[in-house]
Design a protein around this nucleic acid. Structure first.
Length: 507
RNA sequence: GCCGCGUUGGUCAAGGGGUUAAGACGCCUCCCUUUCACGGAGGAGUCACGGGUUCGAUUCCCGUACGUGGUACCA
């Protein structure tokens, strides 16, 4: 049994969105669980749509997710180059070989001529407007032209493409790792362009040639590729033999949460959630926050993506990357598309924030707080705070709201919530309480609470009447962890200061 | 239009001839917390439709509907 080799081949035309990352993830999991190699190549065959920086972006995404290729554009390897633009000559060679063997042909038709052909077919009431066995005989290609004419055209540098000669009577079949046996008629596929006029291969030629030369054993891709599988099978048959063809798995699509259709890069903006792993500009050039920028943990992001279309059959929902490698099973990948649910995605993040050791969270929380101009003391202090508030946080920006009062006195205090029931007795209470805390030698949540309770008894007021005002004094509003915990952490002086501040505001 | 793939609560889903049809997110109620969350206990809500096959279909078969993908010198 040869080594499992899988690959992912993104095109540098835009940000990596959910479907793409999930395909990478499944590829990665499969490779790792079989002790194989995960290879990254770049499909920059459509240079008209090439976007500057998109390639680096792909590397950055992989790094953030922790899905590092074993071989490829960055790491190198024995089967390079891994960028298709650098393999241009290679593809042309195979395309020529197909022409020589009568499996493909040169086509000199211009875009306008093809347009004309289609309108003619349409007005004739034809359903199929394809460049195929039925229409190629009336087009300008090496099948219809005299050999000398073709030769002259080529010598004159006339632009041409190489098209696959699809025999409509053939049928092809293959076994999909997820969907089982699939049979397709070639009558419905057109004579696909293999080599474009600019000398670049189309996806169809490139994927087959690269998969062969890079010894790929298993190929995972989105379901949208299923209809073109016959083309690839034909190419394998003509070029390298069906026995060498990788096993295919067509993954279900990730769909829009509302309405219909597969999730697209524009949906994030429209629906208010990220669709990219990392930030990426939208069509109008505005930067769209990715999962990273929105405050997701890569662990949560990967976990959420893994179970969108795959389920391990038990009740477990939280999986680390190591567990995913161990448990992932192609047989348990769904056949139907899944709608993306941002609420559930957030839940995964909240779970991972609770699950991960606090020390792992420090860098993320620090970043958020520093961006809010919070002056941070030592890590020990931060760890105590994180422990206190982390179960109240879903995304990292929540840490700011949930912990800012540990660092700065509340600017706005919600006195309106205290005012209605405020009276002289309560003022007395807080005045004597501020006196009493002077004497607390060991400033801990327990001692503060004990002192507070004693005072409450002395004044004969219900504790509930006083706890909320106290909280509002310290936090500024009605939320947060235990009041005595907060008082303990911010210190005696700060506690006094905040009580006195609010007392004045309430007059 | 044609071809492919699909269809279990609002969403993710387990199950696969006989089940009270798991579980999770979200929603609702209550408990805990003299706050907000976390946690706990409950609740509402589902097998697209029509025919077969069968003693019995959510499950198997065939249709229909609906969804979705493809039908490019895009990937």
């Amino acid at each position: 049994m040869s080594t499992v080799r899988v690959r992912f081949a993104p095109s540098p035309t835009g940000g990596l969105h959910l479907g793409g990352v999930r395909t990478i993830l499944y590829n990665y999991l499969f490779a790792k669980q079989n002790g194989g190699k995960f290879i990254l190549r770049i499909e920059d065959t459509d240079q008209s749509r090439y976007v500057e920086g998109a390639e680096q972006y792909i590397f950055d995404c992989l790094e953030w997710c922790g899905l590092i290729p074993d071989e490829g554009v960055v790491q190198g390897g024995d089967y390079g180059p891994y960028r298709q633009s650098e393999r241009k000559a290679l593809y042309a060679e195979y395309a020529e070989r197909l022409v020589t063997e009568g499996k493909a042909y040169y086509a000199f038709d211009t875009t306008e001529e093809i347009e004309t052909m289609r309108t003619t077919l349409k007005s004739a009431g034809k359903n199929s407007l394809q460049y195929d066995a039925s229409s190629r005989t009336s087009m300008r290609n090496s099948l219809t032209l005299m050999p000398e004419e073709t030769k002259t055209l080529l010598q004159n540098g006339t632009p041409y493409v190489i098209r696959l000669k699809v025999e409509p009577t053939e049928r092809v079949a293959f076994d999909d790792l997820i969907r089982g046996h699939i049979e397709l008629e070639l009558a419905v596929v057109d004579d696909k362009v293999l080599l474009k006029a600019d000398g670049m291969p189309t996806y169809h030629l490139a994927v087959v040639v690269d998969d062969y030369l890079m010894k790929i054993t298993h190929a995972f891709r989105g379901e949208e590729w299923l209809p073109s599988a016959p083309v690839h099978i034909l190419l394998w048959k003509y070029l390298f033999g069906l026995d060498n063809m990788p096993k295919w798995a067509h993954l279900p699509l990730i769909m829009k949460p509302d309405g219909n259709g597969k999730l697209s890069k524009r949906d994030g903006e429209r629906l208010g959630f990220p669709v990219f792993a990392l930030q990426w500009p939208d069509a109008s050039g505005n930067m769209q926050a990715g999962f990273k920028e929105r405050g997701f943990l890569p662990e949560a992001f990967l976990n959420m993506l893994a179970v969108l279309g795959w389920h391990d059959g038990t009740e477990q929902e939280l999986f680390s990357l190591e567990e995913l490698i161990e448990k992932f099973d192609l047989d348990r990948v769904h056949v139907a598309g899944a709608k993306f649910d941002f609420e559930k995605a957030k839940w995964f993040n909240a779970e991972w924030i609770k699950k991960l050791p606090t020390t792992n969270l420090i860098p993320y929380v620090k970043k958020v707080l520093v961006e809010e101009n919070i002056h941070l003391k030592d890590d020990d202090f931060l760890v105590k705070i994180i422990d206190l508030v982390k179960e109240r946080c879903t995304l990292f920006p929540d840490f700011y709201e949930q912990s800012k009062f540990f660092f700065v006195s509340p600017v706005e205090v919600d006195t309106a919530s205290i005012q209605p029931k405020w009276n002289a007795d309560k003022v007395d209470f807080f005045n004597s309480f501020t006196q009493k805390i002077e004497d607390i030698a060991n400033w801990t949540a327990e001692s503060i609470e004990a002192t507070f309770k004693e005072e409450v008894v002395q004044h004969g007021i219900k504790p509930g009447e006083l706890l909320m005002p106290f909280r509002i004094m310290l936090v500024g509003a009605k939320y947060g962890p235990g009041v005595f915990e907060i008082a303990a952490l911010i210190g005696k002086e700060e506690t006094k200061k905040r009580i006195e501040f609010t007392l004045k505001a309430l007059v």
